[in-house]
Design a binder for these strands. Structure first.
Lengths: 322, 322
DNA sequence: CTGAAAGCGCTTACAG
DNA sequence: CTGAAAGCGCTTACAG
């Protein structure tokens, strides 16, 4: 591991000159800058990040805290953050926090002492503790996939819009009778979006259902047997939609001819089922990417404001014009 | 951010005493150790990892390099690493490298200068470059999910065994005629495992198929139409199995009555399809966890040897006794 | 334009 | 058992 000292010796200058030359300081003559760079290349010099952090400079390290990388949802967000940070020359330090106390006792201390320049937080359970992070430690942070809080800017998608767009799509393809599968104890925004899309003109109802395959399957059986079958169905997740589809398939209800189905998720399940699911989805990768960009911009001294990211509609085979 | 100096002042001792007391050095009197800890608690002291790294001590940071966190497969492995490292008091620094040049130019330099104690590498494309990492930089590393190379120990699952166990399961439930869907340009181990399980007694054949839904679907259509339908089918991934199932479902072939299907993956697709897929899967989470444990053990000075992790069979509804 | 020196926060021989 | 000092590798006022 070559250090500044090694480069300095080889280039025949002082280490401070090397430091300046490599940092691109204008106060270094072209000739020495050239010589220093050559020496650095020859030795394969790379700055020691710990030393740089210690002397108060940026390290290029961005801390990323998520609840669970194993979930495809969060994994996508992480991907967006990683790619963006990498593209801008940095690296990501990953923290997972399951809950508030885990965060407070393990992650927060690490966050402040790890030498990161800033943090992207994708932790839905955080609230009060956010103050601590930014106020006590002065770490710059942005939130991802949750509304701005505690004065920290965030990048997120709006749930009401998701439901609105899905219902709108069903109405656009001719459904005159739609249903939303959700649970009242979930975010109420889903129901609001549905109401807004229906606009008092299209009959719509809400079925209670957990976000599981089982719940979708049971509802599908019940609808196939006793009806009334809506012309269009919105599910809050792909599993529900799959359950519905399978129940329908087994009972002679055709998707999308008899009933169009649209999901508010868009995981790998959506394309691996038959018919493939039309879906309205949060652009999680983009949310991660934008959050990272916002953080890096803040670190560059730019001011940042929260951003609402829009959902995208992907039309596949489970919905069609009737 | 309280530092050692702050704690020292509050406790009325020298910073070296604080450092020793907090490190649990036996050469510190119980009384001062007690006083120092109290002061540290009161100030909410947490050591600065950069400073610690700079003075040559362990930082508790483990570098993890993967090809793609967005894939559920790698995400599971990352989860195993993160949870294990966290449980042992450390944190993970995440790097993603798409390919060899990306690794060499961006990741390797970062790996050596980021202050990590060691690295878990889950990069299938690595080979020659491994020498560099360990020899030039002296970083301790373990490989995950690939065979040991360049003298670096690894934790991995054996593909031949996966195929063997899947075929064995089919034979055990009474299939007297099995087929494997794979491609000759994939790892040949799959075919070898099948051969070994069949043992010259059970007729078996190999169908060429990309690891996609489409490939499975097309094969399913062909088998349903023209046969001969094997009694048991092994697919190298869930997508293939899903495609097969759908083609069968549409053409009156019943799974598992007419044909048992087993997959060599076990993603979320396996449980979200109908019938749910029986699968032989790599314990990726465990591979990550074991790799992390192995690395941390090596850092503790223990010697480590490569480990082969065994696949697990999860019997669901797509196979049954005939 | 360049160098000598101090400082970031920690650890650890070296004295006492 | 405890302190004063040097050192890890970098950055940046301060001189010249």
């Amino acid at each position: 591991m070559a250090t500044l000292k090694d480069v300095a010796r080889l280039a025949g200058v002082n280490i401070s000159t090397v430091s300046r030359a490599l940092a691109g300081s204008p106060s270094i003559s072209a000739a020495t800058a050239q010589r220093v760079r050559a020496a650095a290349d020859q030795l394969g010099y790379h700055p020691n990040l710990s030393a740089r952090a210690l002397s108060g400079k940026r390290t290029g390290v961005v801390a990323l805290a998520v609840q669970d990388i194993m979930s495809p949802v969060w994994a996508l967000l992480c991907g967006g953050v990683c790619d963006t940070v990498a593209a801008r020359g940095g690296t990501v330090m990953l923290f997972t926090a399951q809950n508030e106390s885990d965060y407070r006792e393990r992650v927060l201390p690490a966050l402040r002492s790890c030498g990161a320049d800033g943090a992207v937080l994708a932790l839905l359970f955080l609230d009060q503790q956010l103050q601590q992070l930014t106020e006590e430690t002065g770490i710059k942070a942005v939130l991802a996939e949750c509304r701005p809080r505690a004065g920290i800017p965030s990048v997120y998608a709006d749930r009401e819009e998701a439901s609105y767009r899905a219902c709108r799509h069903l109405i656009d393809v001719g459904c005159r009778d739609i249903a939303l599968v959700t649970a009242p104890w979930f975010d109420h925004s889903y129901i609001e979006g549905c109401d807004r899309a229906a606009g008092g003109e299209v009959p719509h109802r809400v079925y209670s259902g957990e976000p599981t395959y089982q719940a979708g399957y049971q509802l599908g059986l019940a609808l196939a047997a006793d009806g009334p079958l809506p012309q269009g169905l919105v599910t809050v997740c792909d599993e529900q939609a799959l359950g519905l589809q399978h129940a329908f398939l087994q009972n002679g209800v055709q998707v999308p001819q008899d009933c169009s189905v649209i999901s508010l998720e868009d995981s790998m399940l959506a394309v691996a089922t038959w018919p493939q699911l039309t879906a309205v989805s949060k652009p999680l990768y983009r949310i991660g990417a934008r959050a990272a960009d916002m953080l890096l911009d803040m670190l560059d001294g730019k001011t940042a404001a929260s951003q609402v990211v829009h959902h995208q509609l992907t039309v596949r085979q489970s919905t069609s014009l009737r």
